[in-house]
Nucleic acid binder design. Structure first.
Lengths: 173, 173
DNA sequence: TTCATTTCTTTACAATTGTTATCGTCCAGG
DNA sequence: CCTGGACGATAACAATTGTAAAGAAATGAA
């Protein structure tokens, strides 16, 4: 973690979870933020019974339904483990308190939000600009670890296509 | 404008521009923020010579390449007028100064960024979830003024499809 | 008004993707 | 060791979208 975060170390609790564990369910209000020590999480939304993965997170990532965590609104997505994980968790209460006590933490949190904003915008542009095939090639180039580590059908929905279509794209050479 | 903005009124300059005027070019560093008094702007990105509209803005909207305005990095997109416009403009200099002098303004600006983040996320989910046809129907329901006011081929690229395809969708009933 | 430009529609064809279903492989739990 | 479930590949067919081109309609400026 970064400097400002070190000061909260004592507020974190270690949690181990097996694969496919739901840490936050779509529609619920987020009360916890997760720091991934080991393993891999995904966020996903429900679309008429079909799961659409919106993002993957790996070691050293901070994960929360930011909107829900910040505004106490129901989360737009679920958070789930893809592998057995070792997590460090902090409650919203403790985090809010820390925000007020450590201005640098507040600054870093705003910066984090800003980076997330840029990332989400960049991915959005990729959608507007590129075909599914190109999006896959882009992912292969920029985040090969996702493709090596995550089952293919999750990646398909992340790319906005069906598993069948992704399988075709991969074998189209 | 909102309360905190009232205090900056004297820093704004009135600017009239005809339709199709470029206010900021992709790749340039943003030095100005615009407030739309009358008219309509769009942001767009270049994709191999093809223009892709990423957003529309109407009366009472604040428009800037937020990333560029905030970080002095080259803008990822261009800003252009779609109609003759009356704009109120403020320089980055003046705005940064004001940010430091008015804490409420800073707070409001962060809130504005957060809203933009939510909006961009929501639109992104709409892409992952819905077909072009559904996205059009959603736009028709949530922002009918866009469809009434903006030429169709801009809307097509905003929806991520070709003008031909949008024309087909519209006449598919 | 007139003329040029922009905008939208339509057509024909190609390419891509979705849908549904089947089948083989792999792996973990019993 | 066995077996059920998860996962990925493939096939056949339908539906959608892209591309290119032509022409009609609307718009705006002289």
């Amino acid at each position: 973690m970064t400097s400002a975060w070190d000061k909260l170390n004592h507020l974190f609790k270690r949690q181990e979870v097996p694969a496919k564990t739901t840490l936050l369910q779509e529609g619920q209000i987020s009360g916890t933020m997760f720091f991934i020590e080991k393993g891999c999480l995904r966020t996903w939304v429900n679309n008429d019974g079909k799961e659409i993965t919106t993002q993957f997170f790996f070691e050293n990532a901070k994960v929360a339904s930011i909107e829900s965590f910040r505004t106490n609104q129901p989360s737009l997505y679920s958070i789930e483990s893809l592998e057995p994980c070792i997590l460090q968790t902090i409650s919203q209460q403790d985090f809010q308190n820390a925000l007020e006590n450590f201005p640098e933490l507040k600054k870093e949190t705003e910066a984090h939000l800003f980076r997330r904003f840029l990332y989400s915008q960049k991915r959005f542009y990729s959608y507007l600009k590129n075909s599914p095939q190109k999006r896959y090639e882009e992912l292969l180039e920029e985040h090969p670890q996702i493709i090596q580590r995550v089952p293919q059908h999750y990646i398909a929905s992340y790319l906005g296509i069906t598993p069948v279509s992704l399988s075709r794209i991969r074998n189209r050479r």
